[in-house]
Design a binder for these strands. Structure first.
Lengths: 311, 311
DNA sequence: GGTAATTACGCGAATCGTAATAATG
DNA sequence: CATTATTACGATTCGCGTAATTACC
């Protein structure tokens, strides 16, 4: 009869690309995934996969099926949400997000949720943005707070609802004693209202490695400001970045949400200019699920956490 | 995760009204039905059934779920149909219908289908109109040819697509020698163009028992013609009806699709007037499934059978 | 040789049926 | 007392995992 569980496997397969990765995402073995897809294909009487090299590729029939699957899942989510409206907020709510979102937004949001809805048990997982969408798709997470990248779905993807949760401005992090750090009516270029990025064109830059959203953000911002930064150090962890800045090896762009250890003699200097370098946190749910009470309260708590941010 | 099989059980339960009847329709035991509904309710976190006497009644939440279920199933049927378009007509096609539809329409239609599409194996089942819809709903039949009654769903029911396949006129069946049987320019009320029903107001009527579509049809037609028929005999089978007519015990309204044994000395006289008494055969499928190649060919074959009817 | 996908087969869990229980008309 | 629904428990089926096979890079 009607069995959407198998369609769900195909859906994740379309997201991940390989049977092995799909099995991983669904906590299954490649064998199970292969069998489910085969049974679905037999049931529908069409081929869904064709081998290409040692991988598989979805047929046009599979893609046609997926278009319908998106609509079906949306409808299903709406049904679930509508049924739950009015009843008490209970059950399980699973959040996932990138590290800075977990630390700065989810932690306080979850604290609030646990206080306001003791019957709701909330789970949090830190994952990369791309993986967050896979978790949503696989039904293993309900709300994701991510940063849009080339690997994340477009805003109008039929599988998700995405909206901007927070715009996180980037500060210029300099060592204590740096000209920019002398705020107020001081001499150099420093200013309480911030410095222009172009004023820092001559600095040495410390960055997180490539394929990191802040790396791309720096390049884009500097490009808009009319220069290419001289990148001298690549470091993975923010506390290591700020340590290097403290020692005067260079400056960096630091998201305001990211805290710096108190013992590091560094100064945050706001960046002004147009466009100001910001990274936008997106709040994402499976399309249609947003009106579910538990999810709605989760999103509300995240918004409240944004509202209670300092500054 | 997503499991529409349980929703399907609820759907049939809504159609049949009791757990026992649902189990019957799905070829299950009441135990299985009860358990599936319970699991579904637990999964959704809402009550779906409440006991009323020794039966059950669907809650408002259950009805809300069913509204979505109708849309989900339509979408699913559309997906299945779209995927099958273009590929060869194969698989299984299950027809059901009332007896006269089976005899006069389905038999020739199936013959044609078996000739044109040898890969398609076609099954036929004779069922009452109400049961035909249950078969469609339960996924145990694909096309139904029925007569609309008080117990069948309204035309705009979201679960089905219904359209008029054939209008079956009713003839007046009289014994040989009856005044109406003297066609041409004869004496009484007889006429090649038929007689008015009101001309037969004084006759004795033989009918199939109450709760039969032809019984209701007769009463409605006579009411429109301005009289109430004097019903003298109730008989179940048409051949027995015509036998009584042949013996001169009375007349009857006989659907043109129903054949009479050749040895019975009776005459069919067309009925004219406005509105002419006709019964309308409906061709019904699950909503959204109509564009599936096998179903489309089935419907086409039925239409062809209608076109090849005598007269 | 390492990786990806698909089989073949044995095991475990989900689901169904039987039987007993409760409640209604 | 017959009918309807639910629960408990044993049985069957379906689906997953392990392992072997094939194909590809």
């Amino acid at each position: 009869m009607i069995d959407l569980r198998r369609v769900q496997v195909l859906r994740v397969l379309a997201d991940r690309g390989t049977v092995t990765a799909t099995a991983e995402a669904l906590h299954l073995t490649p064998s199970a995934v292969s069998q489910q897809i085969r049974l679905l294909a037999d049931d529908l009487g069409v081929e869904l996969l064709e081998r290409t090299g040692r991988n598989v590729r979805l047929t046009v029939a599979a893609h046609a099926l997926l278009r319908h699957a998106d609509a079906l899942h949306e409808q299903w989510e709406r049904a679930r949400a509508e049924l739950a409206v009015g009843s008490r907020v209970t059950g399980t709510l699973r959040l996932c997000g990138v590290s800075s979102a977990v630390a700065a937004l989810m932690a306080p949001a979850v604290a609030r949720l646990r206080r306001d809805f003791p019957e709701l048990d909330v789970h949090v997982a830190e994952e990369e943005s791309e993986d967050c969408f896979t978790l949503l798709l696989a039904g293993q997470a309900d709300i994701a707070v991510v940063l849009p990248t080339a690997g994340t779905p477009p805003v109008d993807d039929a599988r998700f609802d995405q909206h901007v949760l927070h715009e996180d401005p980037q500060d210029l992090l300099v060592w204590r004693g740096h000209p920019f750090a002398e705020g107020g009516g001081g001499g150099g270029g420093g200013d309480v209202d911030g410095v222009r990025l172009s004023d820092a064109a001559a600095e040495n830059w410390i960055v997180k490695p490539r394929h990191n959203d802040t790396y791309d953000l720096l390049l884009a911002a500097c490009s808009a400001a009319g220069f290419t930064p001289r990148v001298t150090h690549h470091v993975k962890e923010w506390f290591a970045v700020s340590a290097l800045v403290a020692e005067g090896f260079g400056v960096c762009l630091l998201p305001r949400l990211v805290p710096v250890p108190g013992e590091h003699p560094v100064v945050r200097v706001p960046v002004r200019g147009n466009p100001r370098p910001v990274r936008k946190f997106l709040c994402c749910v499976r399309r249609g699920s947003g009106s579910h009470p538990a999810l709605a309260e989760g999103v509300r708590a995240l918004r409240a956490a944004v509202g209670r941010l300092p500054g």
